[in-house]
Amino acid sequence: MSEHDPLMERLAEANPVPPSDVHGEGSSATVDRLLADLTGGGARPSLEPRRSRPWKRSIVVATALVVVIVSITFVLQRAGDAPASASELLRRTAEVAANRRAPRIEGAYIYTMTKGEQLRTSNQGGDNWSVVLPVVEEMWVAENGSGRLRSVVGEPRFLGPRDRARWEAAGSPEFAAGVSDHTFPEGTLAYENANSLPATLPELEGEVREEVASRDVPIDIAVFQRVGELLSRSDAPPSLRAALYRLAARLPGVSLIGDTTDASGRAGVAVGLTYKVSGARVRVLMIFDEETSALLSQERILLDRAPWVDAEPGTRLASVTYLASGRVDSVHDDHLAL
């Protein structure tokens, strides 16, 4: 918690289990019992996190080299043809990204403009209900963590009648619709420097996997989503953007969806990965322009009926459309084209 924050200090005072009650280490009896349960009473291996191992890295590097060699051969053979698979399309787009002009690196702020639809779930009223909120968001972030966030939240949209009825039964709680515009002091926002990420595939993959390990989805889905988030940054250097497309191409199960339009009506091509959420399949999509390598949109599509949401298969549950990104000189500069 940051120092001298009266609100958070008041909230800390309301902690039902204050830190003074936490001693840092478990009592021996409790910990021993849990460890015995976990190990089946046998020998107790260390629960220290593993460190990376040199032989493992060698295998990853060798595999990556084989993939790169095979992919280059494949791309050369198939140049000019329609892609036969998502991996082929992504590797081709990596070549396009690698040959793009380096982005502008001057400018104090990284600016992004996104248009999104966020699925919010609540249990207010007793039963779960979901609603989709449209949000247009502009953000300016400087290296010192200062910046500005402007967002416009539109009218909520219910995916089906059941959730609307449950929302009404809960007393029709209001949503935070409207415009909000705030500036942030130094040290408030997180500045992510795209240039600090490795642009070589094994290192990039290792870093991305570690970064997303705790996300609430299967690890390959989390990597796929993170690749999209990083590709949305037009200030990322061409070598990094190429490596990100190659990383997406390596993910098992990535499939070619084909030509499509994003939530803002822009034409692009989609690749996707599918996973299950409480028994229902959900597809995560990445839509991009293969001619320029620009990422257009990320989406989540429901593929099966699901008890946790009142929506038909094929419904778009959430989306983020990347409208602009780049470096600007002040928090009042905007409207950059992708």
Binding site: E9, L11, A12, V17, M139, L189, A190, S214, R215, A222
Partner: peptide
């Protein structure tokens, strides 16, 4: 932040979101 005493970087890791999103 207030009860577990995490900073933004660690709290964002706990939620599995980017530090930016967490902020």
């Amino acid at each position: 932040i207030a009860w577990e005493g995490l900073d933004n970087a660690h709290a964002s890791a706990a939620l599995g979101v980017t530090p930016q999103t967490f902020a």
